[in-house]
Amino acid sequence: MDRMIYIAMTGASQAMNRQATVSNNLANAATPGFRAELAAFRALPVVGEGAATRAYVAQQTVGSDFSPGVLQQTNRDLDVAVEGAGWIAVQANGGEAYTRDGSFEIDANGLLRTRSGLPVIGDAGPITLPPGSRISIARDGTVSASLASNPSQTNDVGRIKLVNPDERTLERGSDGLFRPRDGSTAQADASVKVSNGSLERSNVNVVESLVDMIGYQRHYEMQLKLLQTAEQNASRSAQILTLS
Rank of each mutant, 00 (worst) to 15 (best):
Q228M: 06
Q59L: 15
D212M: 13
R168I: 01
D189I: 10
E200T: 10
T242H: 15
M16W: 00
L162E: 10
E221T: 14
A81V: 07
D2A: 05
S237A: 15
I7G: 01
D101C: 07
M16V: 14
S209C: 06
P131A: 13
F66G: 00
L162A: 01
A15P: 09
N233A: 15
R18F: 06
D65I: 08
D123S: 14
E96S: 05
L147G: 01
S67T: 13
V157A: 01
V143H: 05
T128C: 06
R76P: 06
I127V: 14
P131I: 08
M4G: 11
A148L: 10
G141K: 04
S146E: 07
G86I: 08
L210H: 09
N205W: 10
Q91H: 08
A29H: 11
A186C: 01
S146G: 03
V143F: 02
A52W: 06
L129Q: 01
G158L: 05
F178N: 02
Q14G: 00
L170M: 14
L226W: 02
Q72L: 12
A30M: 02
M213F: 04
A43E: 14
Q60R: 13
T114Q: 11
T114I: 05
G183A: 07
D107T: 08
M4I: 14
M4V: 13
T242A: 04
S133R: 11
D140T: 04
A234I: 10
A39V: 06
H219I: 00
M1V: 12
T142E: 08
F34H: 09
L170S: 03
S64K: 00
D107N: 15
G33E: 13
